[in-house]
Nucleic acid binder design. Structure first.
Length: 223
DNA sequence: GCGACAG
DNA sequence: ATCTTGTCGC
């Protein structure tokens, strides 16, 4: 698929903050989706030295979740890991991987937060706005926000709150497992996002999309 | 100043 | 994320 050239890249957190504050107004928090036929999962890993960033993208058919396309890309790591600035570290490699896809996904599930972010502009929002693809943040752990006790049954969820504002949801993707953190990335409402995440999750805690991109990333690591 | 802190 | 063996539990 084609992606638009990214905006100027920051060299420090001050510049990164101003970019986040500028771009967050472009996030669409309502459903603006076409028919979903292909869902992509994105995973990013790093080499031992941390100097290389590797992005893997898996495109699955929806709703049957069969692997239809895949891509890997590696770029020099240009930004350190700082909570709240993950996207500046991962987006460049992800864009290169997306460029290699033959199939343009209708929805992207990102490994990280979307709106559930200090400035409401996590990885899923950033990638969504840059590509203008519908995107959802699916994180394995919490960045910010609090929530009420959660039922341990699959499908149950609680709003994730920050100063009374709903910024995402804590979702039990499988009965009895640790919950996952789902939030709006771009062009998807929260309840719709939760629904798609659950529909992409069958046998395990994480969506099949993330599991596939994880696998592709690990395979590539061996080469 | 003391914790918390996506991947 | 990544470095890493065995081990507890279903």
């Amino acid at each position: 698929m084609k992606t638009n050239p990214p905006h100027a890249w920051p060299n420090n957190t001050q510049e990164a903050i101003s970019i986040q504050e500028q771009l967050r107004s472009q996030v669409v928090t309502t459903d603006e989706l076409a028919e979903i036929r292909y869902v992509a999962g994105v995973d990013v890993g790093y080499k031992h030295s941390d100097s290389l960033t590797r992005a893997a993208v898996a495109v699955l058919s929806f709703p049957d979740l069969q692997l239809c396309d895949r891509a890997i890309a590696q770029t020099p790591t240009t930004f350190p890991y700082i909570p709240g600035f993950l996207s500046f570290r991962e987006v460049p490699a992800v864009l290169q991987a997306l460029e290699k896809l033959k199939i343009t996904p209708d929805l992207v599930l990102c490994d990280g937060q979307g709106l559930a972010h200090p400035r409401r502009f996590g990885l899923a929002c950033h990638l969504g706005v840059i590509t203008d693809l519908p995107a959802i943040g699916v994180a394995k752990s919490r960045l910010i926000g609090e929530h009420e006790a959660l039922s341990n049954r699959r499908g149950h969820w609680q709003p994730l709150l920050d100063r009374g504002e709903t910024i995402g949801a804590v979702v039990r993707s499988r009965t009895g497992v640790k919950p996952i953190y789902v939030s709006i990335g771009h062009r998807v409402a929260l309840t719709t996002a939760i629904d798609y995440v659950l529909r992409c999750t069958s046998k395990y805690r994480l969506p099949e999309t993330t599991r596939w991109s994880d696998r592709l990333s690990r395979e590539d690591k061996m080469n």
